[in-house]
């Protein structure tokens, strides 16, 4: 679903690896919650990986993006490289000290830790983007 027109915020595209481990699902859950909280908008990494034109062009044109990988295998990062989309902000959850396992009972404190880290890495990127470019996906002119 496209972004709502004239939304004053929430222009950060959030791409989660959503992989088959605790850290993959932590990336997914954090992306879902940050979308619900209005921080950004989760977008379909699989659509980009499938080279679907609308998804690839959207990722290419968005000024603010964060890619979240659960582990250092870096599937999201590799996918963006394959589609030649510049990776603007990037986070690997095992780098936050979260151990990778197959326990899908996600811990609230780890979800919050991931969300905080995503906000921080995005805020660092936002500070480096000119105002006009950062706001270009809002359509209020």
């Amino acid at each position: 679903m496209p972004q709502d027109c004239c939304a004053p915020e929430g222009n950060v595209m959030i791409l989660a690896c959503s992989g088959g481990s605790n850290v993959g699902q932590l990336s997914n859950q954090a992306a879902v919650e940050l979308t619900q909280e209005g921080f950004g908008k989760m977008f379909c990494l699989a659509g980009i990986g499938g080279h679907l034109n609308g998804f690839v062009q959207s990722a290419a044109d968005i000024p603010q993006m964060v890619a979240i990988d659960g582990c250092s295998l870096g599937c999201a990062k590799a996918l963006l490289e394959h589609t030649e989309i510049p990776n603007k902000s990037y986070l690997v959850l095992t780098d936050l000290g979260i151990e990778k396992n197959k326990d899908f009972k996600l811990k609230r404190e780890e979800i919050e830790k991931v969300k905080k880290a995503i906000r921080e890495v995005c805020n660092q990127e936002q500070a480096a983007i000119p105002m006009a470019e950062a706001g270009s996906s809002s359509c209020c002119g």
Partner: peptide, 18 residues
């Protein structure tokens, strides 16, 4: 499958988004 608008499609191909 576009993330935002406006978007321009030329003969079915998405050319720009947002």
């Amino acid at each position: 499958g576009v993330f935002g608008t406006p978007a321009v499609i030329v003969d079915g191909e998405v050319k720009s988004v947002g």
